[in-house]
């Protein structure tokens, strides 16, 4: 049995906000199955007694003082925007609130 179904891949694409054609989904579902089969072996050695490492550095409390530094100008901030208006980033209509 496949480790991951086409529907699951479709749901992941939805979560990741990537439109996918049926052909793309079919292809990716097959690839994902192979890749997941290969990476699943991490579970073989990951015992409950092994602490996780999320970061190579063991430092903590790196902070900055609460000091204001210069911002970009609005022109700079908006310079890369695909569309802007009234000194704001312009986007197609947003559906619904969070």
């Amino acid at each position: 049995m496949a480790a991951i179904s086409r529907d699951e891949v479709a749901n992941l694409a939805r979560l990741a906000r990537i439109s996918m054609s049926d052909a793309e989904l079919d292809h990716l579902a097959g690839e994902m199955d192979v890749i997941l089969g290969a990476v699943a072996r991490v579970q073989e050695v990951a015992g409950a007694d092994v602490p996780p490492t999320s970061h190579p550095l063991a430092v903590s409390n790196v902070t900055r003082d609460d000091v204001v530094t210069p911002s970009l100008t609005p022109e700079q901030a908006l310079s890369g925007a695909p569309a802007s208006s009234e000194q704001r980033f312009k986007v197609p209509k947003i559906l619904g609130e969070e």
Partner: peptide
């Protein structure tokens, strides 16, 4: 380090 003033002109406190 951007400022946090309420009511500033749009996108003037961004980096």
């Amino acid at each position: 380090g951007c400022a946090t003033e309420f009511g500033a002109q749009p996108n003037t406190q961004t980096c």
